[in-house]
Design a protein around this nucleic acid. Sequence first.
DNA 1: GTTTAAAAGCGACTATGTCGCATTACTAGG
DNA 2: CCTAGTAATGCGACATAGTCGCTTTTAAAC
Lengths: 124, 124
Amino acid sequence: MKRRNTPTKEAVLSVITKSGQAMSQDAIEGEISIDINRATIYRVLNRFCEDGVLHKVIAEDSKQYFALCDGCDETHQKHQHFHFKCTVCETLECLPNEVNYSIPSGYHVEHVNCVLTGVCKKCS
Amino acid sequence: MKRRNTPTKEAVLSVITKSGQAMSQDAIEGEISIDINRATIYRVLNRFCEDGVLHKVIAEDSKQYFALCDGCDETHQKHQHFHFKCTVCETLECLPNEVNYSIPSGYHVEHVNCVLTGVCKKCS
DNA sequence: GTTTAAAAGCGACTATGTCGCATTACTAGG
DNA sequence: CCTAGTAATGCGACATAGTCGCTTTTAAAC
Ligand SMILES: [Mn+2]
Ligand SMILES: [Mn+2]
Ligand SMILES: [Zn+2]
Ligand SMILES: [Zn+2]
């Protein structure tokens, strides 16, 4: 199961990196120069998530958005920060603000998905 | 646009109330005694959301879950509490714990969607 | 260069949710 | 109680997101 370097992987990662935001599959396909199959894009994205390169966020539009992991090793950080989805420019970004939650005892949290929706700084 | 009372509305609300949890369309359809069209169930649910009877949560499975609003009038409370989705029993419940977020200035938040995923108290 | 297995392409498929339109059935007014 | 008006339902079609199996291609190890 060793990863290989492919033009597809590089292209996908480059588009996300340049955007500076979280991106959905269709946004990536739209921005990318070469033609990549939809299923392939999803497979590339999911592999990046497995490898701790990207993390996945579910927004209120029920779509998956993929964002760069910023200095988090898989085992420790769980991407417990807020995300912001702007209804005007449609972008989704990672916020620096951490999610601090407390839950009743007996519950075991494995993933956190917190998305705030509204109007972003630029669009205000 | 005045609402009417129909058997469908009552049946849907009754199923959700009895369950004590947030429910998806397919779960509702499965639990309900009478036969109701899928599109109709969604329309009923969305009307309840407009009327402040239910609120909608997007879980990590990208599905919509609908939960009873507990003493919140539409204008004030924004359902800013955490939700918990159990990966074992597949249920999604509203937690009493409030979401306290701080975001960079310039951002205007309209909706909050926070879901914790893991194993619930019962399934632990 | 050969080998081999990971990755890509393609098509089909599932699932969720929405929409338009014809039909049904609440409910208010008489 | 009847009737008219319109909200709500059923049905079918549709859109979109995401996945899967299978074949072909290709990275990279030897
Ligand atoms: Mn993030
Ligand atoms: Mn809730
Ligand atoms: Zn914006
Ligand atoms: Zn459970």
